[in-house]
Design a protein around this nucleic acid. Sequence first.
RNA 1: GGCCCGUUAGUCAAGCGGUUAAGACGCUGCCCUUUCACGGCGGAAACACGAGUUCGAUUCUCGUACGGGUCACCA
Length: 465
Amino acid sequence: MIRTRFAPSPTGFIHLGALRTALYTYCLAKQDAQGVFVLRIEDTDTARFVDGATDAIYNALRKCELVWDEGPDIGGGYAPYIQSERKSLYADYARQLVDSGHAYYCECDKSGNTDTVRKPSDKCPCRDKKLTSGVIRQRIPLDGETSYQDEVYGTVTFPNTELDDQILLKTDGMPTYNFANVVDDHLMGITHVVRGNEYLSSTPKYNLLYKAFGWQPPKYIHVEQIMRDARHKLSKRDGDAYFEDFLSKGFIVPAIINYIALLGWSPRGDIAEQEIFSLAELVQYFDVGGLSKSPAIFDIDKLRALNGKWIRTLPADEFERLASDFSDNLRALKGKLNNYPLLIELLQKRTETLTDIENNIDFLLNLEKFDNSLYNNKKSKSTHEIALELLTGVLPLLETITDWTAANLFDTLSAYCSQNSINKNTLFHALRTALSGKAVTPGGATDLMDILGKQETINRTALAK
RNA sequence: GGCCCGUUAGUCAAGCGGUUAAGACGCUGCCCUUUCACGGCGGAAACACGAGUUCGAUUCUCGUACGGGUCACCA
């Protein structure tokens, strides 16, 4: 039975890289009918604890539908799931290691001396003393090498002389991340560990710990970093590294999940050309063999494109609800237009991020004064003068139209053009410009006429000058 | 700097000894068309370099270069 865990620190909002780790971890567990996805909060650094961060983690995971089966809020057979509440347990295990000779008390740092040597090659004087207090350090073998199996990288080997006598238990009685991880992963029966590859070089120390305890290590799956560019990680300081950042920029959850899944993992075989994946499909198709060994540069354009595709798959009412959250104008327009559903339909086809909407529809609410040069258009064979003449000419016809729908308007105006030897494009361009004052609009002339309604269309057309 | 990991178009990437080296984003041409889009059909664009192994290397091995990670009482 597969048991995986996502083990974030409550230090702020959730980083995209962490979310991706959670996603892969979740997929792995859910591929097994009996699989269990555990949420564990690693708050052993009391100084970095941020109030509310745990709730932020819950919220983000829930929004993404990465539902955990065991965790601090719902419990489970291995509670508690918050490390600070397991404090005494780690101390017991650390002392056990001291008793068996795999760890020792160290007082070297008591004086605040940071130059203290710790590597086996320059072994710490405390290693051979019988101390009973201080931090507890792991006793790394003086020579030889330690290797471990990684599901992505294969066999990775480190000389023991490169490994620190790392601290297991801090002076405040809290375990270090590295120690708490080993103890908890074992106690909680975790079978697969997915984590960033910044842990690649500390993993041999984990295996030494597992060996000292006589425990079976889990399978390790190290995934590469998400980069901002070739040299820099997608950093929290960039202001666009958090899941929440993207939500507020108008990206929708399934698109974000889809995109980050593909940053570092790719489908192979029969589905190698598929690029749209729902969460359920990711669970179905995710495989460790498709994970990349090299860093991936985050590409916002690709995310935008994917977001647009996902938006187009939404039911109209769902799109309308999401769009309304992002656009004051849209909310203000609801109930005031002749054909609001048409506007929604047109917007859905051309929206990449929800934030795009607001400024694309402002003209529907208020027609601002605009530059007459907008009437000039080569392709439509239009100039300001020609446009005004056509608009004046068509006004009486507009008054007579009773079936005010985009389709009928299109037919009627097309017929009018051919009867009067008018270039259809020229008239439509003039109308679209007069109604919007914009070069780019959510729809064509007759769409806008339908959306705005007869009276407003006539008013705006008459106002054109 | 030591150690570890990596390197296919601008980006994400398929490939796992013999291929016309997929696909997507971006760029671009055309079609559709009442603008821009959406949709459809095309185009340009890549195996870091050098040695081996082999009948044959993008694929295997070793170097070089470049990039990343790590070397905390942070995770």
